[in-house]
């Protein structure tokens, strides 16, 4: 049986997002030309983090907040770092996909134990698994360079005349990935499968009883989100040129989690709003680097205690109020089953 009404609705929303992207794209393409070199690199890192965060948000739709996401991204980073710095180096483009694949494979392996846990229990088990993976980066120094990491990671070789050696060129690569991943994941979020995943998160027992393979539908977003993390890790390594285990430490994981909390995860855009906020905070206080985790922590506390649901809910409420003010009927906020925290 086909659910025509829901399909039509999803297609309509997705079309609107595509049009929005198409309108925004020229602006995004022009953006680096208006920025200094410093801000260009901030922009690239923001885009890479945004990709990682879109994968993270997908994982949260199944009801689990992973704390292994950044270590998983590290698998992508180390894959490309190791293989492109060999004596006979691999092509970046081969490692690009291989890195994502390895990250996905790791998620698949740990899925069996960690997906047996729920809520904060899931968070703890992924925390431990992720930390163990990070320890591998430190300890298997023959491959990973230990605490010093790997340096002289080359930028991607040019394709179609695109040069990725400078920040602007690399930004276009990151932007292309962000747009492709973003649109794919957004359509997935709206799809029947995406809604079924949220239904499993909302009520696992009921879902199982109406014939939903809840195990598969918890594993799928976890693995997909980790593949996306792998892509972001590959780009991070190639952009930075050097990586070490500290690039995948729990403080940076906390940044992703904080973005998801501060922005909210009910809508697709929530975490990105959160990331924008955290990045802005980081740049405003860039002369006080040591204080930044504290500012993130305070933001998380403030949102949890004062603005339940995150900035996205604040925005949705404001939009609704504005609409009422103008007398037009308010839409229901997107996203089918909103999960409870």
């Amino acid at each position: 049986m086909i659910n025509r009404a829901a399909n039509r609705q999803a297609n309509k929303i997705f079309l609107r997002a595509c049009i929005g992207t198409a309108i925004a794209l020229p602006l995004l393409v022009a953006l680096p030309h208006a920025l200094s070199v410093y801000w260009q690199s901030v922009l690239v890192l923001f885009t890479i983090n945004a990709v990682s965060l879109m994968g993270y948000r997908l994982i949260t739709t199944m009801g689990g907040w992973s704390f292994a996401h950044i270590s998983t991204a590290g698998l992508g980073a180390y894959t490309t770092a190791v293989l492109t710095t060999l004596e006979t180096p691999w092509s970046f483009w081969a490692t690009f996909f291989l890195g994502a694949l390895i990250a996905g494979a790791f998620a698949m392996i740990i899925a069996y134990p960690v997906l047996r846990t729920r809520h904060y229990y899931f968070f703890l088990s992924t925390f431990a698994a992720g930390e163990a993976l990070r320890q591998c980066y430190v300890q298997f120094s023959g491959i990973t360079g230990g605490t010093y990491g790997i340096s002289f990671i080359p930028r991607p070789e040019p394709i179609l005349g695109m040069d990725f050696g400078n920040s602007t060129g690399f930004y276009y690569l990151a932007l292309a990935l962000a747009v492709v991943v973003g649109l794919l994941l957004y359509r997935f979020d709206l799809s029947r499968l995406g809604n079924t995943i949220k239904a499993v998160a909302a009520n696992e027992e009921l879902s199982e009883s109406i014939g939903i393979n809840t195990w598969a539908l918890r594993t799928l977003p976890f693995v997909m989100g980790s593949v996306v993390a792998g892509f972001s890790g590959v780009l991070y390594a190639n952009f930075n040129g050097l990586i070490n285990p500290l690039d995948f430490s729990s403080v940076l994981m906390f940044k992703l989690v904080a973005a998801a909390i501060v922005g909210g995860v009910a809508t697709f855009w929530g975490p990105l709003v959160g990331l924008l906020y955290l990045t802005a905070l980081e740049e405003v206080f860039r002369d006080f680097t040591q204080w930044i985790p504290l500012l993130w922590g305070v933001s998380v506390l403030a949102v949890i205690l004062l603005a339940e649901g995150g900035l996205e809910m604040v925005i949705i409420r404001l939009v609704r109020r504005a609409r009422r003010w103008w007398g037009s009927p308010g839409d229901r906020p997107p996203g089918g089953a909103r999960q409870r925290r």
Binding site: N3, A202, I210, I212
Partner: peptide, 29 residues
């Protein structure tokens, strides 16, 4: 198919969305 002693529903979905979700095993074919 079974139901549960303590009523089990998707609390945040509408009534229609609940029933539509029940079609999972038939959907897409």
């Amino acid at each position: 198919v079974r139901t549960f002693q303590l009523t089990s529903i998707y609390r945040e979905m509408t009534v229609r969305e609940n029933v539509a979700m029940g079609h999972h095993v038939h959907a897409g074919r």
